[in-house]
């Protein structure tokens, strides 16, 4: 008789800490706050994922990466469910994730609506170039002190 081992959801969440965001690989899908629920439905592991932006092409890659990571841990029956509500907000980024973004050169989101300072030289003399950037979640800013352009993770 085969006994199926069903790892604890807390253990699975710990494993998902190692699954990076495909666009911003310094943060994980857990850091991003998009994994909303992990639970067993019988012998199937159900994971609820919420999209950051509705058209973000990373969403389907993230689902694939989660499945692959769990297969490597021996879990084959995974059902990834898209959960729209409550809608994702940058408030769900962990503090650790914000520090990692900054170290990577992306200014983390702030409720004030703009970066605190340049992620490179830390100058507060920064200006917005465009509300839209290299991915749906980012805006383009520029530092007036070191003259470097940088990404700002915008609030939603």
């Amino acid at each position: 008789m085969v006994t199926l081992i069903r790892p604890d959801p807390a253990q699975i969440k710990a494993w998902l800490q190692d699954v990076p965001d495909p666009e911003i690989p310094v943060i994980s899908v857990m850091d991003l706050g998009i994994v909303r629920d992990v639970s067993w439905r019988g012998d199937v592991l159900e994971i609820a994922v919420t999209p950051t932006y509705s058209g973000c092409p990373a969403t389907s890659v993230i689902a694939m990466d989660i499945e692959t990571a769990l297969k490597q841990r021996g879990i084959d029956a995974v059902n990834i469910r898209t959960q729209l509500s409550p809608a994702w907000t940058t408030d769900w980024l962990t503090d650790g994730a914000k520090a990692k973004l900054e170290a990577y050169g992306i200014a983390p989101p702030r409720p004030a609506g703009g970066p605190a300072h340049c992620p490179h030289c830390k100058s507060k003399d920064v200006e917005k170039v465009s509300q839209f950037g290299s991915t749906p979640c980012k805006a383009q800013w520029r530092c007036q002190a070191c003259l470097e352009p940088f990404d700002y993770f915008k609030c939603i």
Binding site: Y53, S54, G55, V129, S130, F132, S134, P136
Partner: peptide, 20 residues
Amino acid sequence: LEEDIALANTALDLIGQTQM
């Protein structure tokens, strides 16, 4: 370039909303 990126991002949002 900035406007090109902004238009493409707006298009992406709208297509994502279309899927829903």
